[in-house]
Each structure stands twice: as structure tokens, then as C-alpha cells.
Design a binder for these strands. Structure first.
Lengths: 241, 241
DNA sequence: CGATCGATTGAAGGCTCTCAACCGTTGTGG
DNA sequence: CCACAACGGTTGAGAGCCTTCAATCGATCG
């Protein structure tokens, strides 16, 4: 039976699935998340949520939508350093000098709330720690991608990462997921031009690796792709016990 | 007057300068570092200190030399994800699933020791926190470098980063520092081939940006380079107070 | 002196970029 | 209802950055 409090809508549903896949959450943890989610903020697509170097980046829970973390070079070139997907945590507060290292931009309609404080030793605290590990892993993967992969490999590798993350938070249907990114954004994340990304996507479609139509992406054989790219799966196990 | 214990040699000297530039260290902190440094381990160049995914990566203080953090793709391509320089901390232990995300390789003769535990709230604890912030910043800079800069910009940007870090720990003389990296290593960090890196370096020398002879690098106008590349300086202030 | 390693050079090719135009959809206003 | 603008996706041609493959050179070392 559903608790009456959460019966109408559960904006924190995705976050609970995601964090719950990283650690066992207690009733207290779940209540904290629900309370935090009750005080949500909304941002339309293309809004700058936090500007690089300006404000402190408070720990934030993304309830719905995608956020990009980006840098702009003096001449206007843009590099998207990483993404935060619905259910994930971003904006770690450092005990010192906590100003954002990147600008944070809403990619579609976004709902977020302040991340609740976690009791030391709680499941929530462990989940936060794993979120930070995951974030670091994504940065390292991104460096490898940009430094040593060609366009086709970059496309497949990033889509694989996105699929794995969305599967964990229950936002994928099999090997298919909703892709809110424009090709221009995707290109800025991969260090490519939109034109070349477009041609690369066509090559991937022709070779049967993926399909990308009307905002939905399907990877036809993720396991084979991961093998070819040297991607290790399941690097974020939930602690047993 | 020098303490008798440390009169002969001070292997922890560089680490103390580096950490002391990040936070005010107490006498207790200094003693802990010296004690840890007394139990040092040595690795010759090209030794693999930790293999990716294998052992846990314990927090380690690098007393002398340089360490590279790298990934190897299935077909043998190598990407150096980042460096640790003498005096710096590496190998954060995660409260969960603490296996190394990258392989760690000694680039020259390396001396390291287990990082001492920091009392909560101590200067050393703050310095560790700042080290982690610095490490994250370097990863983000690296993504931007590889994604959106051409070869000449990558070379200058990375050399600038190295110069700033070495200046902080007192390992640079003005705008000159000792560069233990082979061009092949440097190329693997920049996502370039050794051949193209070599030609790019020659172009940089001809245009007067830098000189690199017999293992010593000089940047002739770091401020101007940083301005052109959009590098913000002094992002790691020591807290005043 | 031969071997080894890193740095250097040359030539050719390819992956990716730039510039520009065109297409299809969506939304808006007359 | 249609014209129009705006936006994202697509296509073509040409140029350029970077890679690949080889060979040479210089220094160090046994």
C-alpha cells in the first residue's frame, strides 16, 4: 500500500532508484530524500544553473532531466565535460573554496532539489560516496575517449556510458533510451564538429551499431560494443551486506 | 636550528612545501609527515606501482619523482590521464570498492610513502581536501584540452599546468623546470603521436613560446600563454586564517 | 664498436574541419 | 490557411591538421 504522502506523484522516484542501486537505503534515508524533493526548483532547457567560478556548487539532486557541465574557451569553443542524468547527484561542496569548476546548463526541462544531508555511516552517505566515485570514473573515461578514440569509437563509448547509467536508474527500456541532446551538444561532448558527428552517426546506423530516430537511441549489441572498446561493465557494484 | 632527527636529509621537504602552500600545517602535522616519510618505498622508472582494477589505491604521498596515471585500450593505445608530481598526494581510498581506476606508473626514480592519517579539522586534513580539489580540476582541464584544443595549444596548456604545480612545491626555478618525460610519454598525455608532438614542439620553439633542451623546459611568457588559453591562475588559494 | 633508445625528418594518406547550401519540422502571425 | 522565420539535421566540396610508415641521427652504454 502506498503511503498517502507520496500517492499523488513521486518526483524523487528516479533518484531513489538510482541511489538505492548504489547502497541499501533506510526508511530515514528515503524520508529525507522525499522531504528534499518536496522543495524542488525548475529550470527550462538552455538555462545556466550555475556559472563557472561564480557561486558555490552546493550538493544537488537532479530529479528530472539532464544537466551538462561545460567550459567555454576565450574564442567561444565549448567543451562539455560531462553530464548529470535524472536521479544523480552533482555539485559537490568542497570544505574549502567551493566555487564551481564548470558551468552547469539545463539541457531540457529540469527539476532539482538540494541534496539532503546524510548521516555518517548511513546508506545514503555510502550512496553519495559511490556517486562521487562514479563521477570520477566518468571523467577518466572521458579523457581516454577524447585522447585516444576516433569519432566512431567516441560515439559508441559515450552512448554506452549513458545507456548503463540510465539502466541503473530505470530510465531505459532494454537497450533503448530517450536522448534529449541535440547533435550539436553531443558533438561538444565528444570533441567533434556537428557536421562530422552527423556523418559518423550515419556510418554507425549503416553498420548496424545503433539507431537514433526522433529522440530515441537504441544500441543493437551493447555487450559487443563494450568488448571492442575495452569498457569494463559493472564497475559500480552495490555493496552486498 | 635544525632538529637533529631531520638534519641529515629531508625526503619529505617537497611534500611539506606543497601541502604547506595549501593549508597551514601544525607541528603535529609536520611530525606525522616526517614519520610517514621515514618509511619510504622506492621504484625505478617504468615500474608499474599499481595496476588498474587490481589492488586498492591507498592514499600515498609522493616524495620524489613523477607518477603517470594511465589507461591502455585493448589494441595497445595508451592514454595518460594525469600526473602526480613530487610533493603531491595520489590514490584516494574510497570508502567502498577502492580499486584503482587507472594504472600508476613511475616515470623516473620515485620515492613514496603511505600518506599519514589527518586529524579531522587539522591543517593536514584541509590540505588533503585541497589536493583532491586540485586533482579534479586537473581532470576537467584535461578533458577541455583534449576535446577542444589543437596540438600547439595542448602542449602549452599542459606545460603551463606543470609549471604552476612545480612552482607551488618549489620545484621550479623561475619559469624553468626539469622535465623527466620522454616525448613519447608527453604525446600519450596529450592525445598526439610522438612524431606530431615533435614537430609541434619545434614550432613552439621557433615562435619563442618555450625551449626544451636536455630535460629542462622554459616557458618564456607564461602569463601571456595563460591569457591566450583562457587558463585561470591561482585557483588554489591557501585559506587565509 | 655494436646496440639501444629517444629525437628528428620526409613523404603520403586519411580523418576531421570549415564553409556553404539545402531540407524538413515546428511554431507563429497575418 | 498560408507565409515566414527559426532551428536542427543533412549533404557537398575543399582544405588542413594529424597520423602512419620508414629511415636517419645522436647520445649513452656495455
Amino acid at each position: 500500500m502506498l503511503s498517502r504522502t507520496y500517492a499523488v506523484s513521486q518526483p524523487e522516484q528516479t533518484a531513489v532508484r538510482r541511489l538505492g542501486s548504489l547502497a541499501r537505503l533506510s526508511e530515514t534515508d528515503l524520508r529525507k530524500i522525499a522531504d528534499a524533493a518536496a522543495d524542488a526548483r525548475y529550470f527550462p532547457g538552455r538555462t545556466e544553473i550555475v556559472r563557472e567560478g561564480a557561486e558555490p556548487a552546493r550538493p544537488t539532486l537532479l530529479l528530472r532531466g539532464w544537466v551538462a557541465h561545460q567550459r567555454i574557451l576565450p574564442d567561444g569553443r565549448r567543451q562539455i565535460v560531462g553530464f548529470t542524468l535524472a536521479g544523480e547527484l552533482f555539485g559537490r561542496s568542497w570544505s574549502c573554496q567551493d566555487c564551481a569548476l564548470t558551468s552547469q546548463v539545463a539541457l531540457d526541462n529540469v527539476v532539482l532539489c538540494t541534496a539532503p544531508e546524510a548521516e555518517p555511516g548511513s546508506g545514503l552517505s555510502l550512496a553519495y560516496e559511490k556517486e562521487r566515485l562514479a563521477h570520477r570514473l566518468q571523467l577518466i573515461d572521458n579523457v581516454t575517449r577524447l585522447g585516444r578514440m576516433d569519432a566512431r569509437e567516441r560515439v559508441c563509448d559515450l552512448l554506452l556510458e549513458l545507456l548503463e547509467r540510465l539502466q541503473r536508474s530505470g530510465e531505459a527500456e532494454g537497450n533503448t533510451f530517450a536522448m534529449p541532446l541535440t547533435q550539436e551538444c553531443f558533438a561538444d561532448a565528444l570533441g567533434l564538429t556537428p557536421v562530422h558527428l552527423n556523418r559518423t552517426l550515419q556510418a554507425c546506423r549503416r553498420s548496424g551499431d545503433l539507431s537514433w530516430r526522433s529522440g530515441r537511441v537504441t544500441l543493437h549489441d551493447p555487450a559487443a560494443l563494450a568488448r571492442n572498446l575495452g569498457r569494463k561493465r559493472n564497475r559500480l557494484q552495490r555493496d552486498t551486506g
